[in-house]
């Protein structure tokens, strides 16, 4: 198993290097950090030179990434020009903020989706199932920005005092009081939960229905296994196998920052930072976030593979 994990990690390194190289070239090629300075030359020669140095603009476009790789190997991911902080600091601080909404959103969302899937799968094509399927269809059709705006307006107007949210008055205001923090987390997390549950529960329902139709479920019933045990032991264990991969993807995506939702609720997570970095041609921050999300994706995929192997004895790591 250890050998398997090592092999998997090593296999992704060249891919990541190529991706980072291309991203670096792409960002450098599409954006011009000097745009503002060109107009005022030669008056602002000092600022111009400073930018040239910060962005290594005197180095050829195709060679520029190597400077970055060199320092990155030493653990230095550079400095964000737009936010004026070291990239590692930003990733850490913003990552924690993102995790504050990502972790509850993932946990609650996954559990709710699983419960709804089981509910639907146990009574397919009944009223209850149709109602849930209909709701998930509707939820799934909502782009997250529409969902976020609708929730914000609905809850901010209806329960304004409770949530204290006004448009442009959202975000993480304090970190001191748990209740206050929970209140600030609530709306962005709820948005992610609704959108996520809508997508996951349809997948979960299909997986659970397929499992409940398997021959071994009939065998279990023929043995006299109580229906509860049939569902929660015999079926669930099998239905979880495809879900684990989905969860890994979801969680790594959420932890890399929900760009739209965090931006709308002015949540100071990785998402808005990513938008800023793109808008400001902040190469180092762009690369930092790309690395961050790539590492998360690889890590969670590995976790999923390991769980896969634990759940399904047919999988072997070799």
């Amino acid at each position: 198993m250890f050998a398997y994990i090592t092999r998997r990690v090593l296999a992704t390194v060249p891919l990541l290097v190529v991706a980072l190289y291309l991203v670096h070239v792409m960002v450098s090629a599409t954006t011009d950090p000097l745009a503002d300075f060109r107009l005022c030359l030669p008056r602002c020669q000092d600022g111009f030179d400073q930018i040239v140095e910060n962005y290594n603009l005197d180095v050829n476009l195709w060679l520029r990434p190597f400077t970055w790789f060199e320092s990155a190997l030493g653990g230095d991911l550079g400095r964000s020009e737009s936010l004026g902080l070291p990239v590692t600091t930003i990733l850490w601080d913003r990552g924690i903020n993102t995790a504050m909404i990502a972790v509850p959103a993932f946990l609650v969302g996954s559990i709710v989706a699983l419960l709804l899937s089981i509910y639907s799968a146990r009574r397919p094509y009944t009223k209850g199932d149709y109602a849930l399927t209909g709701l998930s269809f509707i939820g799934f059709a909502f782009p997250s920005f529409v969902m976020a705006l609708v929730l914000q307006n609905l809850l901010a107007v209806q329960f304004e005092n409770w949530f204290g949210v006004k448009p442009f008055n959202t975000g993480r205001k304090t970190g001191e009081n748990f209740l206050e923090l929970a209140r600030d987390v609530f709306l962005p997390a709820l948005t992610l939960i609704i959108v996520g549950v809508a997508a996951d529960s349809r997948f979960g329902r299909a997986s659970m229905i397929e499992t409940l139709n398997q021959d071994y479920i009939r065998t279990a019933r023929a043995k006299g296994v109580p229906e509860k045990t049939v569902v929660w032991k015999h079926a669930l264990r099998n239905a979880l196998i495809p879900l684990v991969t989905l969860w890994a993807l979801n969680f790594s995506a959420l932890l890399s920052g929900a760009v739209v939702t965090e931006s709308i609720y002015s949540w100071p997570g990785l998402g808005p930072a990513f938008l800023t970095s793109i808008g400001e041609a902040d190469v180092d921050l762009v690369l930092g976030i790309v690395i961050f999300s790539a590492v998360l994706t690889v890590a969670f995929n590995l976790v999923a593979d390991v769980l896969y192997g634990i759940l399904d004895p047919r999988i072997r790591f070799d």
Binding site: L22, T31, V290, A294
Partner: peptide, 22 residues
């Protein structure tokens, strides 16, 4: 397969944004 992995490892939003800027 590697080409597909490459596309997937770069956030869509970044590619789309850079393309739209350029």
């Amino acid at each position: 397969a590697q080409f597909i992995n490459l596309i997937l490892v770069v956030p869509f939003l970044l590619t789309l944004a850079l393309f739209s800027l350029r």
